[in-house]
Amino acid sequence: MEQRKYNRIVLKLSGEALAGEQGFGIDPEMIQSIAEQVKDLHKLDVEIAIIVGGGNIWRGMAGAAKGMDRATADYMGMLATVMNSLALQDSLEDIGVQTRVQSSIEMRQVAEPYIRRRAIRHLEKKRVVIFAAGTGNPYFSTDTTAALRAAEIEADVILMAKNKVDGVYDSDPSTNVNAKKYDKLTYLDILKDGLAVMDSTASSLCMDNDIPLIVFSIAEKGNIKRAVTGEEIGTIIRGKS
């Protein structure tokens, strides 16, 4: 049996990752692939918490940029994350993985309310916990949610799965063929150089709580497991060099 490097993880998925090649909405094949990769981790007895963005359905910043009230636009984005979370829960339970969705916005008919101690108990019972609706507050991204929840549940690492890049670069690799990929960084590097990894609030939270972050591509099946078992993939970011 393969050995895990991390016991409790937070897996951060962008909404776009669920959209697959179509770029919007939910791609059933992509979400099934993610569910199967999560099941592989589950077999290693890893305690798994997941946070999914909502950009495949709605982006609060985009709505605000077009004149919508920012708070309203952000709440709509939170509801989009709930839809993605329920879709992922359905795929996981369809392949036999016990899952709970906890929402920061109360909606008891579809999800549990977020309660830290209950979330930890679910994890200890090897249930996958999906945190939905961000922090429950406008003006905060799901990156910040990942950092906050990771600190609250005392996760060993945040795995940030990207669908377009395989790590952190000094410039956009899709427009610059000479973009340099980093293997290792510190959160101070991220903040100082303005690298587009996660927003400054999330970076500061991770740095202050000494939570490592691994940025990698989800396009190659098995990469989530590789990251958890300690293979050197993507870019690892730590509080100290």
Rank of each mutant, 00 (worst) to 15 (best):
K43C: 11
L44G: 15
L44D: 06
D45W: 04
D45F: 11
D45P: 01
V46L: 01
V46T: 13
V46A: 04
E47H: 00
E47W: 02
E47K: 15
I48L: 09
I48V: 12
I48D: 02
A49N: 05
A49K: 10
A49H: 06
A49R: 10
A49G: 15
I50E: 14
I51H: 07
I51S: 05
I51M: 03
I51L: 09
I51Y: 03
I51F: 03
V52Y: 12
V52T: 15
G53W: 04
G53L: 00
G54C: 07
G54M: 00
G55K: 14
G55F: 12
G55S: 12
N56G: 06
N56T: 02
N56V: 00
N56D: 07
I57E: 08
I57Q: 07
I57T: 06
W58V: 04
W58S: 05
W58P: 02
R59V: 09
R59Y: 07
G60M: 04
G60W: 04
M61K: 15
A62P: 12
A62Y: 15
A62M: 08
A62E: 13
A62H: 15
A62W: 10
G63N: 15
G63W: 07
G63C: 12
G63I: 05
G63Q: 06
A64C: 07
A65I: 07
K66R: 13
K66H: 15
K66N: 14
K66E: 15
G67K: 07
G67C: 09
G67D: 05
G67T: 08
M68I: 14
M68D: 10
M68W: 13
D69L: 13
D69M: 03
D69H: 09
D69T: 02
R70P: 07
R70Y: 14
A71V: 09
T72M: 05
T72V: 14
A73M: 01
A73V: 09
D74H: 04
D74E: 06
D74N: 01
Y75E: 01
Y75S: 14
M76E: 05
M76P: 13
M76V: 12
M76F: 07
G77A: 00
G77N: 08
G77R: 03
G77H: 02
M78R: 03
M78E: 02
L79S: 11
A80E: 12
A80D: 13
A80C: 11
T81K: 00
V82F: 08
V82D: 10
V82M: 12
V82N: 04
M83F: 11
N84S: 08
N84G: 05
N84I: 08
N84Y: 00
N84F: 11
N84V: 03
N84P: 03
S85N: 10
S85H: 05
S85I: 02
L86C: 03
L86R: 00
L86E: 02
L86K: 04
A87G: 06
A87V: 08
L88N: 04
L88A: 03
L88E: 01
L88K: 01
Q89L: 11
Q89Y: 14
Q89N: 13
Q89G: 05
D90R: 06
D90W: 07
S91V: 11
S91H: 01
S91A: 14
S91T: 08
S91D: 02
S91F: 09
S91C: 09
L92M: 10
L92A: 14
E93T: 13
E93F: 13
E93H: 07
